[in-house]
Amino acid sequence: MTGTHMSAIAEAPAAAATADARKAGDWLLVATAILLCVWVLLPIYLLIVNALSSPQEVTAFPKRFFPSFDIGSLTFFINFAGVARALWNSVLVATLTMILSIGFGAPAGYALSRFDFPGKETFRFLVLMTRAFPLPLLALPLAVMFIRTGLDDTAIGLALVHTTLALPFAVLITFSLFSGIPVELEEAAWTLGCTRWQAFRKVILPLALPGIAASAVFAFTISWNEVFAAAVLTIENRTLTAFLLQSLGESPLYLKFAGGAALVVPALIFIFAVRKYLFAMWGIANR
């Protein structure tokens, strides 16, 4: 009796202390979240505001909070010599990257989710490890090799490099996707007369398709955003990122903003569209 009484007295300040600590923790969490949001959103906001302002307003001060929705800079940028071609190259390379990453990544993801094989964990780790090599380190040997094999300055050559960047994500996203589909559905299809391939096509594929599409969009975005390999490995057939890096350096400020917006906005939209699956990749439920 006395024991419980004493511990109750001892617990009261302790409880208050934990409550305080929790409150402080909450504040820290909120503050961090706000800081991170500002960190990400502020540049995007400035970019969009400036891209949608007339050339005079971009250099003017003070800034307006809302843009004037003047599309002068954007139209000028679109009609700028070489932009259309670079845009086409970007789309071409990104599409090839998308096809290659899904073509190789989805089967790997399926195998990882459905089969046990020796070295499975090592393989999963290695898939991630490919991201540990900095591209600048690989760029020079790659450029030399590409020139030797004649892959330099081609869309497919660049797409291959981008595929190595996008593939780990494609494997991991499709892995979590296929793992989320109960194996019993596949087994039920087998007992109902399907071969392995038929079961995949009639049951697994329809269920996985939205996620595969999301993973494809993500691969597309990675290629769309990539600048280093694109700048090193292409000369004539520059993608939009490489083109902007090269030609906007000495352009007026408002053109830089327009170019930046043309790069960032599509990527943002893509990522936003597939965010659910990106969370799924890291095992965070987002429902």
């Binding site: 109960p182 019993e184 559905l185 087994e187 039920a188 299809a189 087998w190 007992t191 109902l192 007369g193 399907c194 071969t195 049951v203």
Partner: peptide
């Protein structure tokens, strides 16, 4: 399984 003349009911039903 498809050539064995069997049908199976699974614990979690496995309804597509």
């Amino acid at each position: 399984p498809r050539d064995r003349g069997i049908a199976m009911v699974f614990q979690n039903y496995a309804v597509f």
